[in-house]
Amino acid sequence: MVVGQQARKAMLGECPKKVARLIDLVNLPSNLREFAGGQSQMAHLGFFIRVWSHIKTHNLQDPNNKNLVNCDDKLKSILLGKTQVELSKLPMLINLHFPKPSK
């Protein structure tokens, strides 16, 4: 029961709205569609994981400082045209494309 309670707390501890914002499919703006492989809808979280795996598969991390990413053209198109971004800023940059719905 204790373990169960904890699992439940872990599930409910996160605000359900926040979770929904991460996993619900949304219509992608046109400039992201190319990166998303032509899909017109994608979840915030799925998009983030796609960007991160793109960085990994193309070895875009700076060899001297792994915390930096040297953007290729594809990444530039979605990350405000920057040539180099910090890995720690990545979630925020992606958040820009998934604005909170205004109430």
Binding site: A10, E14, V19, L45, P91
Partner: peptide, 11 residues
């Protein structure tokens, strides 16, 4: 979701 939220919060 859980993993991402923790990471995002830390960052």
């Amino acid at each position: 979701v859980t993993a991402y939220m923790a990471l995002e919060n830390s960052l």
